[in-house]
Design a protein around this nucleic acid. Structure first.
Length: 280
DNA sequence: CGACAATGAAAAA
DNA sequence: TTTTCCTTGTCGC
């Protein structure tokens, strides 16, 4: 489920499955039916991701390729808290009535359910979305200094700033909790107290963690010496998530100090941290 | 079968 | 700061 790594992986997978092919576009649920009809049969040219936003580029079938590249139509998708995407083979089974968007070609299909956004937008509208998002550790053009400028001017807790997509794009509730634990940082520390060196460390670590997240399509954050095998503790079996230090481990023993993991509401979400290991 | 939570974010107040 | 929207799986009765 959706933090930035999920969306970038989705862009890769959509490109692999559909790029440069004419795509049948439908909206079995009906909420995207008018736009789907406009796109149906056109060529999916590219897929782009910025933070938790996914953009599927379509060019009109029959248009010259350069026209499509200069003036593409984009499907803007945001999964929100519980949007889901499911790839499958052809022939595609009949869709359930919750499928907002289905793409299909001769080799694959994909279903989108429960997104917070699924809308047909223009190129300028897409640029406006990029403009209001902060740097994304998974994008090569990202400028971490832009994020630090905002952080260094804010008294807001770093754990809240990490969730603010205008500050940094793609980090969600798991990565924020885990990256702060990995560097021993108190989640309530005001952003302005973070040094440039500390921010650089966090950014580099997020980049590595999220790249691995794209590769594995899940979030793992424990260092090699703290894996279940290395420590002789049972692996995490409860959900589809990977190995983590604090996320959803309230009241369970910290992998480092053994003390209980704390939880509290912060930025409208459940924050998890180890009060013993995170004092900096 | 209803209540509720869940890796999110925008609109309303 | 609260409300609203979106879907699915799990838990308790």
């Amino acid at each position: 489920m959706p933090e930035g790594h999920t969306i970038h992986r989705l862009a890769q997978d959509c490109t692999a499955a559909f790029a440069r092919t004419a795509v049948r576009v439908t909206s079995p649920q009906g909420k995207f039916a008018d736009s789907a009809a406009l796109l149906d049969g056109t060529v999916l040219t590219t897929a782009d991701a910025h933070g938790k936003h996914l953009f599927l580029g379509f060019g009109a079938a029959g248009n010259a390729a350069e026209d499509a590249a200069e003036n593409p139509a984009w499907v803007h998708i945001h999964l929100g808290l519980f949007g889901k995407v499911a790839f499958g083979p052809v022939p595609a089974p009949p869709p359930t009535d919750t499928v907002r968007l289905r793409l299909a070609n001769d080799t694959a299909h994909v279903d989108l359910r429960g997104p917070t956004t699924c809308a047909l937008i223009t190129d300028p509208e897409k640029r406006a979305i990029h403009d209001r998002l902060g740097p994304d550790p998974l994008r090569p053009d990202a400028d971490p200094a832009a994020a630090h400028r905002r952080i260094s001017r804010s008294r807001t807790a770093i754990a809240a700033l990490l969730m603010d997509q205008k500050v940094i794009a793609g980090v969600g509730n798991v990565y924020r909790a885990e990256v702060l634990f990995r560097h021993g940082i108190d989640p309530y520390r005001p952003g302005k107290d973070l040094t440039p060196a500390e921010w650089d460390t966090i950014w580099q670590d997020l980049t590595a963690l999220m790249r691995e997240g794209v590769r594995n399509n899940r979030i793992d954050t424990v260092r090699p010496e703290h894996t279940p095998e290395a420590m002789g503790r049972p692996p995490r079996v409860d959900d589809h998530g990977g190995e983590v230090y604090v996320y959803r481990r309230a009241n369970q023993p910290c992998h480092l100090c053994g003390g209980p993991i704390s939880t509290a509401g912060l930025a409208a979400r459940n924050l998890f941290w180890c009060p013993t290991c995170q004092k900096r």
